[in-house]
C-alpha cells in the first residue's frame, strides 16, 4: 500500500505517521507538501495532527483552502480513503468533507493524556480491524476537540452508523466524566456516509508500540490493508537497542 501524508505549515505529526506506516507497517509512505496541485498516485491519504497556520482564524480553516485540499476533496468524493487525525479532523470538517465542527474544549484546557475509546462501528475502512463495542486506548492532545453538530446532523450520524469512536470509562460506559472535552455524545471520531473519509481527535500514530502503552493505533492504520504488519509492534525499538 502507498500512503500520502499531507504536510501543512505547522503540521507536527506527519513524521510520526510516516514512521508508523513505513517502519512499523512496512508500507510505502510519502510526504506531500500542501502547495502541491496534484495528488501523486496513492491508495490513501493522511491529514496529520499539528497546528496548521498556527490555528489562526479557526483550527483547520486556512489549511482547508490549501491547493492540495481541492485534490484531496475530489479524490475523497471518488472513494479514496482519507484519514484526518486531530488537526486533520478539524481540516476535514472545515473543508466540508465531514459534518460538524471542533470547538474549544468545554473546560478551556489543552488536554493531553491517554483516553479510552469504545469502537462504535467496524463497518468503515479504517475500523474493520476492530470489533464493534471493543475498548481501545489512544492519547489525545488538543485544545479544540469538542465535537459539535446541530441536532439534525447528529441524528443522521447516529442513524447512519457514522460515529466510529466515543470516549468511555474503563467499563466501556459513555459517561460525562469520561468525556475530556465536552464533545456531543462523547464523540471522538466519525466517518462520512460512504465510510471512506474518517476524522478522529485521538492520535492513533502515538499508540503503535508497546513502549507507548498501546498498539491499538497500529490496528487502525492496518485496517486498510489485509496483509499483516512486517514488523511486530515494538520490534523497531527492540532492534535499535540491540544495535
Amino acid at each position: 500500500m502507498r500512503w500520502g501524508v499531507v504536510v501543512f505549515p505547522g503540521s507536527n505529526c506527519d513524521r510520526d505517521c510516516l514512521f508508523v506506516l513505513q517502519r512499523l507497517l512496512g508500507q510505502e509512505g510519502i510526504a506531500i507538501w500542501h502547495d502541491e496541485r496534484h495528488l501523486p498516485p496513492v491508495d490513501a491519504v493522511v491529514l496529520p495532527g499539528g497546528f496548521s497556520y498556527g490555528d489562526y482564524l479557526r483550527s483547520g480553516a486556512i489549511a482547508s483552502l490549501s491547493p492540495i485540499m481541492a485534490e484531496v476533496g475530489r479524490a475523497a468524493r471518488s472513494g479514496l480513503p482519507v484519514l484526518g487525525i486531530c488537526n486533520g479532523f478539524q481540516i476535514l470538517c472545515e473543508a466540508g468533507l465531514l459534518p460538524g465542527a471542533l470547538l474549544t474544549n468545554a473546560d478551556g484546557l489543552f488536554r493531553c493524556h491517554p483516553t479510552r475509546l469504545r469502537v462504535e462501528s467496524n463497518c468503515c475502512l479504517f475500523t474493520r480491524g476492530f470489533a464493534s463495542g471493543e475498548l481501545v486506548q489512544m492519547p489525545i492532545a488538543h485544545g479544540q476537540g469538542r465535537y459539535y453538530a446541530d441536532a439534525r446532523t447528529l441524528d443522521r450520524l447516529e442513524r447512519s452508523g457514522s460515529i466510529l469512536f466515543r470516549y468511555c470509562d474503563a467499563h466501556g460506559e459513555i459517561t460525562r466524566e469520561a468525556n475530556p472535552n465536552g464533545s456531543l455524545a462523547n464523540i471522538a471520531g466519525i466517518c462520512n456516509e460512504e465510510g471512506n473519509v474518517v476524522g478522529l481527535m485521538p492520535h492513533p500514530e502515538r499508540a503503535c508500540e508497546t513502549l507507548l502503552a498501546s498498539t491499538d493505533g497500529l490496528r487502525l492504520f492496518g485496517s486498510l490493508d489485509s496483509t499483516p504488519p512486517k514488523t511486530e509492534p515494538g520490534a523497531f525499538y527492540a532492534g535499535s537497542a540491540a544495535r
Binding site: 482564524l57 479557526r58 480553516a61 483552502l65 470538517c93 472545515e94 460538524g100 465542527a101 470547538l103 459539535y148 453538530a149 446541530d150
Partner: peptide
C-alpha cells in the same frame, strides 16, 4: 464561507 463557520 471562510471568515465565519456557519456550523457554529
Amino acid at each position: 464561507d471562510f471568515l465565519a463557520n456557519p456550523v457554529v
